[in-house]
């Protein structure tokens, strides 16, 4: 018997990364801006997305959504009420979406006809951060009720995000939300990241967010 060391130097999630790179190429070729929304359970991803889809459709943009959920299709039904095409991805117990699941759920959709595709990830602040879905923009959401130090507790996720959305601003005062601390903590983990302070209930901050989407889409088209 002889033993030897074989150098592999191979990414553990190489398969996912390759599939994600393939998706990213498809999205770029179709000129659709893809966003991956990540947060804890109950932060308000679906509510924020419902509102975003409605506003986009109202301004004449074409947007679609994929939504990951462990078992139910409740979120997909809520989102579909906006009039946008929506598909549910049941992960059956898996705590995050993977590029392969996204790829499978695109069948039959004409990507080139879309302006935006939103992917609502499974509510979880740990696992989704390791899995690239081919998105252009990763959005980390944080509600005013879940603690201003969330970014410090989950630095991996917040550091991998491109934009942050603070949700439920309408109840910020009632829950004693410390806005300065939240902004400081996000900036400490991901310096310079764009931060949107929003409420799906009142529509606060939505105009700024929609402006950002438009700007990012223009960037993508120009690149």
């Amino acid at each position: 018997m002889t033993t030897r060391i074989v150098e592999l130097r191979r990414g553990i999630l190489k398969k996912n990364d390759e599939l994600a790179a393939g998706l990213r190429d498809r999205f770029t070729a179709a000129n659709v801006l893809v966003l991956n929304l990540v947060s804890s359970p109950g932060t308000g991803k679906t509510a924020f997305l419902e509102r975003t889809l409605r506003e986009l459709l109202a301004q004449g943009s074409l947007a679609a959504a994929l939504v990951g959920d462990l078992e139910t299709d409740n979120d997909a039904r809520r989102l579909a009420a906006s009039g946008a095409p929506v598909r549910q991805i049941n992960t059956h117990g898996i705590c995050h979406l993977e590029a392969e699941m996204v790829g499978k759920h695109l069948d039959g959709w004409e990507l080139a006809a879309l302006d935006y595709l939103f992917i609502e990830n499974v509510g979880n602040l740990v696992c989704p951060s390791s899995y690239d879905l081919g998105e252009k923009i990763r959005v980390a959401l944080l509600s005013v009720t879940e603690g201003e130090d969330k970014p410090l507790k989950y630095p991996t996720l917040f550091n991998s995000a491109d934009a942050a959305v603070i949700t439920k601003m309408d109840i910020a005062e009632a829950v004693g939300f410390d806005r300065e601390a939240a902004l400081r903590n996000i900036n400490e983990i991901r310096p310079g990241m764009r931060i949107f302070e929003t409420s799906a209930k009142t529509g606060a901050g939505l105009a700024e967010w929609l402006g950002y989407l438009q700007e990012q889409r223009a960037n993508q088209a120009g690149s």
Partner: peptide
Amino acid sequence: MEIEAIEIEEA
């Protein structure tokens, strides 16, 4: 997140 190397025993 990568596999750097493996140590194997060859037949």
